[in-house]
């Protein structure tokens, strides 16, 4: 290192500051600030994606060894068929899982994560702040309580005997006891996941409504608009972006979620969605049979769907703001 000519002395007795060029400072800054995140992301998110890509084309099972490459896993999901439109047709169990996933995702999303979340956000923001906050806190309770507890509560609520909370309420109303777990399994998982999804949507939409300038509401009221007109002309237009964000993100989250389904329904055939199929065939405690390659193949399909969703999200999100250039150039 050559002697710098413009060295500034910083007070008597202080050692001269280490002389670093802009470039070397940039390197150390990047290492210090971004390094840890890169290590974590690379090792536990990026590498697993590629691991999955490889394992999906093997025959890995409980021994966790790769013996050779094969497309056998995908043949379990679909078989070639010259008559079919795309040249293959889906096998029964996978076809069922796929259609079940679609019904489950669409129902939960449409009923709870969007419609009900919107209703909650609109009604709680129309009330005084403390009261609206109270109801929002109640609705966030399932989200904030541990998943095993939440699953347990569901099991006790829909218990088919007279002890179940639902049946107690029905008995008070003079109705016959029901057994939703057996008779309406899809409804159970839609509502159970919906309660959680509605609270997330509610939070996002509430903060979006809050960020609408107060003057717009005043102006609309002075212009003669009633509550419903204000919702239609002022609030809903402002929620376009958050609503599409919720749609894209939550549909994917629902597609890959299996925690509550597993905790409430166990490995029941009526609620065997794609994510559940992959989980029960591999790692589920007690019943997972370690067919890692098969699970990886299903995961690969989910990854492809995820990529497609990422592309949609890409188009939706405000890239220009995300990528705004920093205004300090020195490192």
């Amino acid at each position: 290192m050559s002697r710098p000519t413009n060295l500034i002395t910083r007070g008597a007795g202080a050692p001269p500051p280490p002389v670093m060029t802009q470039a070397s400072r940039q390197t150390t800054n990047a290492l210090v600030f971004l390094g840890p995140a890169c290590v974590f992301l690379l090792c536990l998110l990026v590498i697993p994606i590629f691991v999955d890509l490889v394992v999906a084309f093997t025959d890995m099972s409980q021994t966790v060894r790769i013996d050779g490459f094969t497309t056998k896993q995908f043949e379990k999901l679909a078989k070639p068929s010259p008559e079919a439109l795309l040249g293959f047709e889906l096998r029964g169990s996978f076809y069922r899982a796929l259609s079940l996933s679609a019904v489950y995702v669409v129902c939960t999303l449409a009923i709870f994560n969007i419609s009900f979340a919107l209703i909650l956000a609109l009604t709680t923001t129309a009330l005084p702040d403390w009261l609206g906050g109270l109801y929002r806190a109640i609705w966030l309770l399932p989200r904030m309580s541990p998943s095993v507890v939440y699953g347990l509560l569901w099991l006790w609520t829909i218990d088919p005997t007279g002890r179940g909370l639902l049946n107690q309420v029905l008995a008070v109303a003079g109705l016959d006891p029901v057994n939703p777990k057996l008779d309406a399994p899809l409804t159970v998982i839609v509502v159970a996941n919906g309660f959680i999804g509605a609270s997330i949507g509610m939070l996002i939409l509430t903060s979006a409504i809050r960020s609408i300038p107060q003057h717009l509401f005043y102006a609309a009221r002075a212009d003669g608009a009633g509550s419903l007109s204000i919702v239609r002309h002022i609030v809903l237009p402002a929620l376009r972006w958050p609503l599409s964000y919720i749609t894209v993100f939550q549909s994917l989250a629902l597609l890959v979620s299996f925690e509550y389904i597993f905790l409430i329904m166990g490995p029941a055939r009526q609620t065997m969605t794609m994510a559940m199929l992959a989980y029960t065939k591999t790692l589920a405690p007690g019943i997972g049979s370690g067919q890692y390659a098969y699970g990886a193949a299903i995961t690969l399909i989910l990854i492809v769907i995820g990529m497609a969703v990422a592309l949609i999200l890409w188009r939706l999100s405000n890239m220009k703001r995300l990528l705004t250039r920093p205004r300090i150039e020195v490192q």
């Binding site: 994917l252 979620s257 992959a278």
Partner: peptide, 24 residues
């Protein structure tokens, strides 16, 4: 590029990657 990559990773819900993460 980093930010866009991060946006893609954000889409990968952790539960999706349970199996490969277990292997790693």
């Amino acid at each position: 590029g980093f930010l866009q990559g991060l946006l893609i990773l954000e889409v990968f819900h952790p539960w999706m990657l349970t199996i490969p993460i277990f292997l790693v």
